[in-house]
Design a protein around this nucleic acid. Structure first.
Lengths: 230, 230
DNA sequence: GAGGCAAAAAGTGCATGCAATTGCCTGCTG
DNA sequence: CAGCAGGCAATTGCATGCACTTTTTGCCTC
């Protein structure tokens, strides 16, 4: 019995690798352009190269890493242009989710969305960025689910995760917290009214604003090469 | 009988496997639920199991195959519900593409869209289903590109390919050819006018109609288990 | 000192081998 | 004859090995 997997959760080794590496990319711990060396990763996680290779392949299929034949893999480098296209897509996807949510959410879903949203008002007053961030994720996830469309849900979640590295610290901007809440409020109100078009428009505006706020960070952050971690 | 992988295009072996297996799924040659045995596939394509495994992993990340740990892979089984959600997503995505196309296509893109569309009128008169099918694909691809948004393009193409197996023979329906052309015409007209909303609506209606036409076929075809293809 | 070449080093791509898991088959029990 | 335990064949999951490609390094030339 050689060294058993230590800290990571269950599933096959490949799945663990996909999550481990994917998480590090999504959270920004691994930066775009950074080299993903199979041997080092294998050593780092105490597995052989095979599961690492498979994981890199899957991550590449998801668009999180880029693979150059015979030349190794790197964390996907997102051009400004492609980043913009993802933010724009995100706005459209959220608009669809909000519109469908307005039309399709069950009474229970509407109620709990409203309740959570109202509860979050306190976080804004307290200026609790961390907690609001968590709530914010929850809020949007509710919209995605509320659309009652599995495929749109998948696309939206995937797009959001690919955007995650570029969206950190958005709430640090002065006043962003309160504005975010108001924008959410517009979405919730429209959903409660069952007004799909208004909900869609409100969601699109909301995401567009977030995009602009985030883009600022992305610019200085992006085109750099690979840093030294650990 | 066994043997060559000559007819496939270049790239790494894994890429070839992804394309080979993916094609067979998308074209319906491999049916939903069918078992994908690593050893047989490896023998069939005359490679070792490793690239087959990697390919299956990537296809699973794309949603084309389903992988049960330790229990092998099967062609993804799409429930009626999930299928409906994909068709609905498709309509929304095409609507976005058409709207953006109306707003963003270059003059050259508009012109060539119009020209090709007009040329296809002949195919309708001739009742040339095969040729029209080819043109139809081309037409929609132009819309996706015309949106000038790489991420939406990716999502749309991916969704379309996943729907491909359920969309066969749609033009066999009586009169579908002519109606399809008219629906395209509405889209083109709106795009030429630069009217994004009209283009989006026309595209959504168009796809919705196709969805309904296709759903008919899907019903009898879908939930069955695995056939014998060999 | 810059440029170019060749050999070595590093790293990827695929094949093969072996342990682990699953599912089936058999035979026993009630 | 149904039901279940145990064992066996088939198949998956991962590790390792080897060939090939790319990159680096060191040396030579100019």
């Amino acid at each position: 019995m050689s060294g058993k997997r230590s800290l990571i959760r269950s599933g096959t080794t490949v799945d663990q690798m996909v999550r481990a590496i994917g998480d590090r990319i999504v959270t920004g711990y691994l930066r775009p352009g950074e080299k993903l060396d199979e041997t080092s990763l294998a050593a780092r996680f105490d597995v052989s190269r095979t599961p690492v290779r498979e994981a890199l392949g899957q991550l590449s299929a998801m668009g999180l890493v880029e693979r150059r034949p015979n030349r190794g893999a790197i964390v996907a480098v997102v051009t400004q242009e492609h980043l913009a296209s993802m933010f724009e897509s995100m706005a459209e996807l959220e608009a669809i989710c909000a519109r469908f949510s307005a039309e399709r959410m069950t009474t229970a879903e509407r109620r709990s969305l409203e309740i959570e949203h109202q509860a979050s008002a306190r976080l804004v007053q307290l200026g609790a960025e961390e907690d609001y961030e968590y709530f914010n994720t929850e809020f949007h996830t509710r919209l995605y689910r509320g659309a009652h469309n599995a495929h749109i849900y998948e696309m939206t979640v995937m797009t959001r995760s690919r955007l995650a590295p570029f969206r950190r610290a958005q709430f640090m901007l002065a006043g962003r917290l309160a504005k975010s809440w108001q924008e959410h409020d517009a979405i919730v109100t429209a959903i409660m009214r069952g007004d799909g078009n208004a909900a869609g428009k409100a969601a699109k505006d909301h995401v567009s604003i977030v995009s602009e706020a985030s883009a600022v960070f992305a610019v200085g952050d992006q085109p750099r090469a690979a840093p030294q971690h650990q």
